[in-house]
Write a protein that binds this DNA or RNA. Structure first.
Lengths: 274, 274
DNA sequence: CGAAGCCTTGATCCGGCTCAAGGTCCGTGG
DNA sequence: CCACGGACCTTGAGCCGGATCAAGGCTTCG
């Protein structure tokens, strides 16, 4: 694989600067790609934490099954995302991961991740930034589920997918593929599948969204953003300059005092860890 | 302050081993304690990220104000917690922080944190673990808000506070102080203040919880845990042994291969970063 | 004693859930 | 090529949990 083509390298470059050696280290994460089919469980909740993986083709999601038989989908993964970082500090999984459609994932071990930590403070800092942003996304989702109406929740989700997909070139004039069933959307949004259907109907009648099978068209993305009070900060906000400051990274070992307060604006990352 | 007394050192010891030098580094975070009164805003949402802080006395919470005038409380902080790590990778705050009651906070700078990163890989790894656990708590809260009834939400919150407070010795026979108004509880739980009141009434009639002003008594904590499907994994699960392996940490610079798959069980931490 | 918070309780309303009955699209086998 | 079954979606009817509105009680403090 070409250095430029790697979605994972692209992601890290949003959060820190990388040397060639560091890019190679990252690429090694994807040395063992395996095919997975729609519906495949990558790992179950409560299973032992023995690996993480990147996803290079297809969509996946993480989920928790609840006592009453319902299910909460925690996050939808797109190509380039790192899956499972959430479990790094645990010995058992807090959530399962399943494929939404056929795809390719590349498992890598705890040790592989540690090798990266040992070798590069830049990668470590980048990973830190990715995890913090991941937390910001979760916070946004929490507010969404706790406080907003069905229309706002769906609008927020569609707009967020629109932004994430646009960044990896998967949107054409407001149209994109959304390979989730309405039942799965309900599991994401904390709604019943029936009400997801009704909400799409309402959006169609209001001229906001068209949907046919797994294709959706956002006729007025900005209206959706406004309706859902979408705040892009958690996707777009600048990363502090220190993440790009290689001088700082060399000081990490020397212990010399540093001074660096400026911020550097950054295009929003397409993919998040975990 | 004595090394043993520091809540922040106690917290890190849950997640990694520390040398005396590292403990001193951590203690330096609390060199500038300042008093804060109930209702004081530590920082506003959208303000510039210029510092973080630890809280050594009193309770605080982070929050987001929403467009419709309502408010979501994201997390309640107890003495020993680190506040604001969530914003580490951003230049603007995603959430404000306010004091629930009078207390003492110790601000520290971005740079101070970086000095820690530069000086100690053990502290860095510990911080990583803390952030991952923080994310697990958020996930749990998300599921709670998305999927559970008012009774389950309140039971879950009370039981979680019960566990966190027990760990810092603030629970006596199921009784503890809970200095949140019912309006604030509603903002935590995504409920109206009125319905929080009704839910407490229901618990009282069922003999589960007594409440008087800012005192609560859990008459049957396990019943609350069961009612809310409380899963303590996210608080109690073991930390992988590598966080305690100082040999690994020295290898971080050398790049020698390591092998270490065992897990080490750990008492749950009382406090979380952010 | 009065005023302001805070909590409780009742009455009513509404958003989303559940149950149920089709309808459409698709893959499969005869 | 058609018939059938299954997955998925749509729409209606009725219900319910929690919101909202409103009135009154209790504490605390000036």
């Amino acid at each position: 694989m070409n250095l430029q083509d790697s979605a994972i390298v692209q992601q890290f470059l949003q959060h820190c600067s990388l040397s060639e050696e560091e890019k190679v280290l990252l690429l090694e994460l994807e040395q063992n790609p395996i095919k997975a089919s729609a519906g495949d469980i990558i790992w179950q909740e409560n299973s032992k934490v023995d690996q993480f993986c990147t996803i290079s083709q297809g969509w996946a999601y993480s989920f928790r099954n609840l006592g009453d038989g319902s299910r909460q989908i925690l996050k939808v993964y797109l190509p380039g995302d790192i899956i499972g970082m959430r479990d790094f500090a645990f010995s058992n999984r807090l959530a399962g991961v399943a494929m939404i459609e056929d795809g390719v994932v590349s498992p890598f071990s705890h040790e592989h991740l540690l090798r990266i930590f040992r070798s590069s403070t830049a990668l470590t800092a980048g990973l830190f930034a990715i995890v913090c942003r991941q937390q910001a996304m979760l916070t946004e989702r929490l507010i969404n589920l706790a406080r907003r109406t069905a229309q706002q929740r769906l609008a927020h989700f569609l707009y967020e997918m629109y932004l994430r997909l646009e960044r990896i070139g998967a949107v054409n004039n407001g149209r994109f593929r959304l390979p989730l069933s309405q039942e799965q959307l309900g599991d994401v949004l904390g709604l019943s599948a029936v009400h997801v259907s009704r909400t799409f109907t309402a959006f169609r009648e209001e001229g906001l969204v068209l949907r046919d099978r797994h294709r959706v068209a956002l006729l007025d993305p900005e209206a959706l953003a406004q309706l859902s009070e979408f705040d892009g900060t958690y996707l777009n906000d600048a990363v502090p300059a220190l993440f790009f400051d290689r001088e700082w990274q060399s000081h990490m070992l020397a212990g010399t005092p540093i001074k660096n307060e400026e911020m550097v604006p950054v295009k929003s990352p397409s993919a998040q860890a975990d």
